[in-house]
Design a protein around this nucleic acid. Structure first.
Lengths: 198, 198
DNA sequence: TCCGATTTTATGACTAGGTACTAAAAGTAA
DNA sequence: TTACTTTTAGTACCTAGTCATAAAATCGGA
């Protein structure tokens, strides 16, 4: 049976959202109407033509890709840094960072922000995490803004740097971690050969 | 000066790689040759036309998007799991996971794999990480495959579950961590109110 | 300098997947 | 039946090409 205009347009939107690569001709066949009807529908619903839709998808992914690599260098935006002393970054928890069901942020994103910040605060091109002890103090929900504060607090006997990172949502502590950082410019000289990078 | 054919074709490939959205006409102008020359070049280099290029970019991003959300639920592919006992996942280190300079995997990806696995092994819908102590034993490079093995080893007094995760590249241990996991089905009953989620 | 090969440009016919517009036909409700 | 909405048809035009043919320009070598 041929659906009503309203129903057809609803399904049309859904169909195109799911598969932007479908042509008017294919849509016409799918809904058993003429190509012209489909075009009228698109016009009424302000749905652009196939090529424009594809271009939009492509543009988005291209922008994402450009953003993906450099931005992944540091998780969160660093808003203040004093090399080898302290640093602050912010990270907005979005849909892609949470468990679908509970909307609670996955731990590794909070870890990633803190870890990135710990790497960044070290004034060394090859700083890497050797060890970390972390604690998720309270859950962080979608939409919340996490402010991570890193402080260099000392050094180990092996020449590693200790960085304390505390992350807050507003005034509340949500995450805290102690990071033991390896740095390259200190030549390895003691027999601790098999555990120093991350 | 107009470049030689060879040089022009080299630059053409590069230009299109950088910006797949450029038309033959724009390319012709850029290289001060006719549109036909550009088309001959594309033919010789097997570079598809603009619309096909755009479609390819879009297809890729579309596939990525479909993969992105559900796959992000777990970092790495789980290949074996025995609920509340053990689990194994593999994670291939790619370009996007490493420091550009050193090609060494960023710590948080290894953490994410281990953390995801620790969450997955717990037979509970709302399992969350409460605490973790981790160690990056050796660096992992781009192209390496990391196999993470999680084992439930015990419980704390608070009803939390302890999960040990060891990650290997081949036979070599590269990461190890102890995760203290919070689970929802154990009603909070002791006064430990302010530290249980991640 | 001329020859032949390579490279470049021009031209025309055709394509997909449309837009924009006009007009007619079909369906529907009072 | 009339009035209105909805659907279909048809035409001209568009972009960004393909494919094929042919002519013009350029280049290297004897």
């Amino acid at each position: 049976m041929r659906k009503s205009k309203r129903e057809r347009q609803r399904l049309l939107q859904e169909t195109i959202r799911e598969n932007p690569f479908i042509t008017d001709e294919e849509l016409a066949e799918k809904f058993s109407v003429s190509v012209q009807t489909i075009r009228l529908d698109r016009l009424e619903l302000s749905i652009p033509e196939l090529r424009e839709r594809i271009k939009n998808v492509a543009r988005q992914s291209f922008a994402d890709k450009v953003r993906a690599l450099p931005l992944e260098e540091v998780i969160g935006d660093i808003i203040d840094i004093e090399p080898d002393a302290s640093a602050i970054s912010i990270f907005d928890v979005k849909e892609e960072h949470v468990f679908r069901r509970t909307r609670i942020a996955r731990g590794h994103h909070l870890f990633a922000q803190a870890n990135s910040l710990a790497v960044a605060v070290i004034h060394d091109e090859l700083a890497l995490t050797a060890k970390a002890t972390i604690r998720f103090v309270r859950q962080v929900k979608e939409g919340e803004r996490v402010v991570a504060k890193a402080k260099v607090t000392g050094k180990t006997a092996h020449g590693r740097t200790i960085v304390e990172v505390n992350s807050y949502v507003g005034q509340e502590l949500v995450f805290s971690g102690t990071f033991e950082m390896y740095r390259s410019n200190i030549e390895k000289k003691d027999g601790d050969s098999n555990e120093y990078r991350g």
